[in-house]
Amino acid sequence: MRRQSAKPKWTELAVGSAIDVPGSARYYKTGDWRSSRPVWNSEHCIRCGVCVIFCPEGCVLFQPDGYPNADLDYCKGCGICLHECPTGCIRMVEEED
């Protein structure tokens, strides 16, 4: 199905209802599922990359400053990074705070 703002009519569906835009999943911003987000304490972070590897969404990446951080467009706030971090440098912050 083509990405479009209005819901498509039956005549507007792609052949076989296939998704013909490669990589279109990136338009689906899963970050709005999040109720809390991870915050890194760079003083304790040893930049081991365990959080980068374990992030199920693939949204934790090393930033230009050399430290990992989550892309909040896609981070669902699952907390796996926190669970796996060997130094305990990640904490979850409620979105409402």
Partner: peptide
């Protein structure tokens, strides 16, 4: 292309009419 995606209620009706 991705073939065989989910058809959410918003789209399933149209796919079956097709």
């Amino acid at each position: 292309v991705s073939m065989g995606p989910v058809g959410i209620p918003d789209i399933y009706t149209e796919t079956h009419h097709v």
